[in-house]
Amino acid sequence: MREAVQADLASANSQSATDDTIPPGDSGVWVFIIADMCAFALFFVLFAAGRIAQPEVYEASRQQLDGAIGLANTLILLTSGAFMAQAVRAARKGNRAATLSGLGLALGVGLLFGITKAFEWSAKLNQGIGLTTNEFFTYYFVFTGIHFLHFVVGIGVLFALIARVRKFDLDTTQQRWIESGGAYWHMVDLLWIVLFAMLYLMRAA
């Protein structure tokens, strides 16, 4: 029965998802994604080193963050990511309407992240907390800021994908584009997952 399900999936998925050697999307996009993730890994090292040197400053600063907004941001990106995953699966099945609605919802929900982020940052700035307040907030603003730039690019990518799906047939090239865009969007998502744990949830004893 399991085999039957797999065979079914294999026929439904035209290209790479069931290919055990070639990852989905354009291989070059993965170079971009890996390089980017490595840059963030360096950020994590900087943060960890800073936290070891000044644990009290980091904890006191962490308490000034609003964890509920951090959670809301996480849920927004996860939901948007789920719609993106749906769009990729629909594209592979050749279902244009479902692909478009998946991309549109990923975009619509994703945009909420921009609103909550603007709200969160402006609240901090209004409290007189800024880029140079202390090392924790330097990292907070820089890392979430660079992450936000990635988010903005991702929103651009989603717009571009929607335009392409409207204009062209859902052929294999198109699927590759959607898979590549999807991989990028999920990267934005997973980097936030780390940032959320690192900045908001590491409560000191």
């Binding site: 354009d26 291989s27 070059g28 996009v29 993965w30 170079v31 971009f32 390089a35 980017d36």
Partner: peptide, 11 residues
């Protein structure tokens, strides 16, 4: 020019 290098440059 390899695509990965193109992407690397963009990055």
């Amino acid at each position: 020019i390899p695509k990965w290098l193109a992407w690397y440059g963009i990055w």
